[in-house]
Structure formats: structure tokens, C-alpha cells
């Protein structure tokens, strides 16, 4: 088995996909670091102070002003209201939620990347794992060897899991070191709050507790990993079902992007919460942002994702072992 996995890893490495991913991440992180740096600078210039309390207070006032204008959609109003209460809570407890530093940047990067960017990276690896063997014809060579089909597929799947872990490590590593060059490498022990529960327009703070930032980041990475695995598994299933790698990419892309769009407009379509793509933003539950559909919780989303992942895994194994290869 380990030889099979090694063989699959060799294929992935030889295709140079991982290096492309590393390069993409490095470029994007550098870009976002610069954007963030600009934003911080502009903020300081506008308020004439580096005092975070003043800055946070100003954000609260800005949000309150926006809430008071009549032309504002209900969803946006709800979002603003929740965020406002949260900022107020941070302020009242004298905790700076965005103290500059590489770990803070990491945290924000993961939160923003979890529903689209990270799944896309995973897709790059997962999309052609099986389909390329089918379209290239090498699948026959692979299956004529004296190993069970299930074992072949399992080795591919394990290689995928390993690649996903590697990708996340790259993201964590690069976002820490590149942004640290600008913001400094400090801030692992910064206290953060989690456990906010958004209920309608209210913010329930009964469960709020403090976490040091290192733990917070690790939790978010764990969730990101979970999301990536589910998306990876779904892509893997498509890769088994569809021969053309381009088609796999297309289907997955459509699903992911529709998820990003749907999240913004499904609040009245309740059964949409069983779709995997509106459940990808798991980190939002940690930071306490209102979910796209009322009633969604971390447990719910993880269950939905797990069910989708397991179903996809079962389908890929059944189809792969039963199918005629010609």
C-alpha cells in the first residue's frame, strides 16, 4: 500500500502542480499583505491616530450611520448589526480584534480564503487524479497490475489527503512569513473572543469565551482542512465519474462560485442549507458572523459537509470498482 501511495505522490509531484500552487499562494499573499498594509496606513492617516480603540469606535459609528440610511438591504442591515454588537463587545472588554501582526493576517487570510480560494487550490490537484488516467489511457496499465481496484483508488485518495495537508501547510507558512515581514511576527498570544451566536438581529454573548490567537488560528486551519477535504472528495468523485479533466474543473468551479453567490441571496430559501457550497464558511461560526440562512450552526454545517463527503467517497469507490474499463 505504501508503495502505491508513494507512486501516486510521485505522480502529483512530477506534474509540478504543487509548485504552481506554492507560487500562486506566495503571489497572492504578497498582494494581500500590501493591500492590508495600505488599508492600515490609510486608516491611520484619516483618523490621525494609531489608537485602535479610536479606530474601532470610528468603525462602529460608521456602521451606525450606514444602518440609519433607508436604502439598505435587510441582509446587509442584519450583518452590520451583528458586527456592530460584536465590535462593541470587543471594545467594552478592551480587546483589540485586529492588532497588527502576522498571526492576525493569517487569521484573516484563512477566513477569506476558506470558501473559494482554498477549494480552488485543492481542485487543481484533485481534478485530474483519476480522469487523467482515463483520458490518457494509463488506467489500463494501472489496473492490470495484481492489486485490487479499491486499493488503487484508495492510494490515490490518500495521496490527495496528503496533498491537501501540504497545501494548507504552504498557505499557513507563506502567509505567516510573507506578511510578517511587514506586520511583524508577534501576536500569537493575543486574546480573541469566540462563541458569539447570531440570533436574528441580536447577538447572543452568553457563550463567549477567550482564546489565545495561536489556538484560534489552529482551529481555523483545522476547519479549513476539513472544508478542503470535503471539496477534494467531491472533486475526486467527479474525477472518477467524468473522463475529461476540463469537465471536472468546470463542474466544480460552477458549484463553488454558485455557492459564493448563493450565500448572499438564499436567506429566504431555507432548504438551500443542505447544499454543500453554502456551508463552506465554517470559520464564520468561530468569529461569530451571521450565517447565510438562519438556524445554521457549526455542528449543522460540519454534518452536512461530512455527509456530502462520505457519499461522494462511497460513490467513487462503488463506481470505480464496478465499472468496465475499455
Amino acid at each position: 500500500m505504501s508503495n502505491l501511495v508513494y507512486n501516486e505522490m510521485l505522480k502529483i509531484v512530477r506534474k509540478k502542480r504543487l509548485w504552481v500552487i506554492v507560487a500562486i499562494v506566495a503571489v497572492l499573499v504578497a498582494l494581500f499583505t500590501y493591500a492590508q498594509y495600505k488599508r492600515v496606513q490609510e486608516m491611520q492617516e484619516r483618523l490621525g491616530t494609531t489608537d485602535w480603540r479610536t479606530q474601532l469606535q470610528q468603525q462602529i459609528i460608521d456602521a451606525q450611520n450606514r444602518l440609519n440610511s433607508s436604502s439598505i438591504s435587510d441582509e446587509w442591515r442584519k450583518y452590520l448589526q451583528i458586527r456592530l454588537k460584536q465590535q462593541q463587545y470587543y471594545l467594552e472588554h478592551d480587546i483589540n480584534p485586529s492588532a497588527p501582526g502576522a498571526p492576525t493576517f493569517m487569521r484573516m487570510f484563512i477566513e477569506n480564503a476558506i470558501d473559494l480560494f482554498l477549494p480552488l487550490l485543492v481542485m487543481v490537484v484533485a481534478a485530474d487524479l483519476v480522469s487523467s488516467e482515463a483520458s490518457g489511457g494509463t488506467i489500463k496499465l494501472l489496473l492490470t497490475r495484481p492489486v485490487k481496484r479499491g486499493a488503487v483508488l484508495l492510494s490515490k485518495y490518500i495521496a490527495l489527503l496528503l496533498s491537501i495537508s501540504f497545501i494548507l501547510l504552504t498557505v499557513a507558512f507563506l502567509s505567516y512569513f510573507i506578511s510578517g515581514a511587514v506586520f511583524g511576527y508577534e501576536g500569537w498570544r493575543l486574546p480573541l473572543l469566540t462563541g458569539f451566536v447570531a440570533q436574528g438581529e441580536e447577538l447572543n454573548t452568553a457563550n463567549v469565551h477567550m482564546l489565545p490567537q495561536w489556538k484560534y488560528v489552529l482551529i481555523e486551519l483545522g476547519l479549513a482542512w476539513f472544508v478542503c477535504i470535503v471539496v477534494g472528495t467531491l472533486t475526486f468523485m467527479l474525477s472518477v465519474l467524468v473522463r475529461s479533466t476540463a469537465a471536472v474543473m468546470g463542474i466544480m468551479l460552477a458549484a463553488l462560485i454558485s455557492g459564493a453567490i448563493l450565500s448572499n441571496m438564499v436567506s429566504s430559501w431555507h432548504s438551500a442549507k443542505y447544499l454543500f457550497m453554502v456551508n463552506l464558511r465554517l470559520t464564520d461560526y468561530i468569529s461569530g458572523t451571521a450565517p447565510p440562512i438562519e438556524g445554521m450552526t457549526l455542528g449543522f454545517s460540519m454534518t452536512v459537509l461530512a455527509v456530502w463527503g462520505l457519499a461522494a467517497l462511497a460513490i467513487s469507490f462503488i463506481v470505480f470498482t464496478k465499472r468496465d474499463i475499455y
Partner: peptide, 17 residues
């Protein structure tokens, strides 16, 4: 890395639930 992420996930479950 995988072990690290799994521990992160375990921590999530422990912390959030």
C-alpha cells in the same frame, strides 16, 4: 501537517461544543 490539522479540528470540536 495532516496530524497538525486533525488536532486543530479536534480542538475546534472540543472548544466549540
Amino acid at each position: 501537517a495532516g496530524i497538525l490539522w486533525i488536532s486543530g479540528l479536534a480542538m475546534t470540536i472540543q472548544d466549540q461544543f
